[in-house]
Amino acid sequence: MQQFDNASAGDIVLSIADRIIENRAYLSEIDGKIGDGDHGVNMAKGFGMAAERIRGNDMSLATAFDTLGTVLMTEIGGSMGPLYGVMFTQFAETIEKSSSIDARTFSAMLTSGLDGIQAIGSAKVGDKTLLDTLVPAIEAFDGANADGKPFPEALDALVVAAEKGRDGTKDLVARIGRASRLGERSLGVLDAGATSCALILKALALGAKEKLQQSATASD
């Protein structure tokens, strides 16, 4: 059974935060085309604050997700604070009782994050939001599992689908949030939330793969 330990895996969240902070200017730039241009600034602020609290504290993945989710919800505001805040706190709640994380737990975690987002937001797939990254990514991960693919391959499938979903937002008309007021004029531009979501999922998948490799090596 391929799995990795929940304990000490909190550094995965640090690598997610690093990717967001590195992409601060890029995320703001794409947001500026159809939104306010503050997506990168606010995301980097929230993920940076969370990273400061996580770094050096040898946290479990669950605790690190909870720390990140709480910071986003209580300190960031906007739309992304509650949406990502709910997603990460749901991630945390789903895995907090699991000492190790296998593909099934990982899927349950992603699904519960998605449920949390859908409970507070009103967006649907195709509205040009982060759901256009998250939903196909989860479907691809679950599909690979159903096909009997190993956990790391399912994670690869998740990343491919997330990035494809992100790229697909270029061809979508925004139907919700600030960009929706642009109508057809939002065509041809990536959605900033879908883009940050792809960064998050990729960093999460890579981090999980690394942990799987480490635990495989350790048990050899």
Binding site: D36, M73, E75, G77
Partner: peptide
């Protein structure tokens, strides 16, 4: 009070 052009948090 929110950030510039950005909603306050639920907590606020």
């Amino acid at each position: 009070v929110g950030e510039l052009f950005s909603s306050p948090t639920a907590k606020s």
